[in-house]
């Protein structure tokens, strides 16, 4: 019964959060300077024309009525039409979302691998200068945000020692003619490895920039839990059985050190996705974030609304998933 209650409370809070998000997005966009009607009409339009158009777009109604009409449309998946691209916002946004998701997941994978390796290394050589070294690397990776890592990478691996492409998602000469926008996934499934390599050539640097701060968080947390676990009885037992230190860490300690790290990694995933906005801009990567900045610069209000809402839904969804995952995975809470 208590579990059901907890889930219902969580669902209610999520609903309140989403409603609040909708209100904020609506309010911020409405206070934006500039009359949208004035922008649509040619100069010299009569007052009648203006009134007619205002009525057509529902702008003659009260602000509260306008909000609920807008919210109703949004709930039906109708985000309006983009002013600058002249296509339905939902179509544009869903077209760009896969690029951002692929970049985020690649970054996440890199972060987990890097962070895990660092934590393993620091635990294996704990209380030696190697651990101090890892701590210093962590401290720097953690304090410097993705934007600066991106710039540093462009300089190092893009210009000084040009290994990777510094802009775009895919080489313009390469037209994969894929049926989805999940280029990376589809290229792997179709075994078009030339496309995969080209995509990675473009994606690795932005992904690395996004991954570094998160890798540091993972390394730090995992290291702390690993070191704690290393003093537990069952780890001692495994050691007395004659297993090597590396084997003990990777087989016995890792499994139990994972849960706290996993939860925090989930929460950090939203920070990583938030970081794609500026990183995509920096690398001219054609994802949602880059589109969002264009939309802001072009004052394309319907498009901005759509993108911000999509990000918000994504974030709320991730936070909810993390909560649920934690409840499912934590043996102490499972029977609570």
């Amino acid at each position: 019964m208590t579990a059901l209650r907890a889930i219902l409370t969580r669902a209610l809070m999520t609903a309140i959060t989403l409603f609040g998000v909708a209100v904020i997005v609506f309010v911020v966009i409405r206070v934006a300077p500039g009359d949208p009607i004035a922008m649509m009409l040619p100069p010299g339009a009569s007052d009648d024309d203006i009134a007619h158009l205002r009525a057509l777009y529902g702008l003659d109604k009260s602000i509260v009525q306008q909000f609920f009409i807008w919210l109703g449309n949004v709930l039906q998946g109708d985000f309006g039409t983009s002013i600058s691209i002249r296509q339905p916002v939902s179509r544009i946004v869903l077209n760009r979302l896969p690029a951002t998701l692929e970049l985020s997941l690649l970054a996440m994978t890199i972060a987990v691998l890097f962070g895990g390796a660092l934590a393993f290394f620091a635990t294996r050589f704990r209380e030696t200068p190697a651990e101090t070294g890892v701590d210093i690397i962590n401290g720097i990776a953690l304090s410097v945000p993705d934007f600066l890592w991106g710039l540093a990478l462009i300089l190092l691996l893009g210009v000084a020692w040009p290994v990777f492409e510094i802009s775009g998602r895919i080489s313009p000469s390469l037209d994969p003619q894929f049926s989805t926008q999940f280029y990376l996934l589809e290229s792997i499934l179709r075994l078009r490895l030339d496309v995969t390599l080209d995509l990675l050539d473009h994606m690795l640097m932005p992904a690395l920039a996004l991954a570094l701060p998160l890798a540091a968080v993972i390394a730090q947390l995992l290291k702390v839990s690993l070191k704690e676990t290393m003093n537990q009885d069952y780890v001692m037992l495994a050691r007395t059985k004659g297993f090597s230190e590396s084997h003990v860490i990777s087989h016995d300690a890792f499994r139990n050190a994972l849960l706290p790290t996993l939860t925090l990694t989930g929460i950090q995933l939203t920070f990583l996705i938030g970081g794609t906005v500026i990183i995509e801009r920096l690398f001219s990567y054609e994802g949602l974030g880059n589109l969002a900045i264009d939309a802001v610069i072009n004052r394309d209000l319907p498009l901005i609304q759509g993108i911000v809402l999509l990000f918000a839904i994504l974030f709320v969804g991730i936070n909810l998933a993390v909560d649920l995952l934690y409840t499912v995975l934590n043996p102490r809470l499972r029977h609570g």
Binding site: T17, V28, I29, V308, F311, F315, V316
Partner: peptide, 16 residues
Amino acid sequence: WMSFPPVLFSILLVAV
């Protein structure tokens, strides 16, 4: 507040 990407949120606010 946590539901918005902070960078996008700040860009949007400054634009507004």
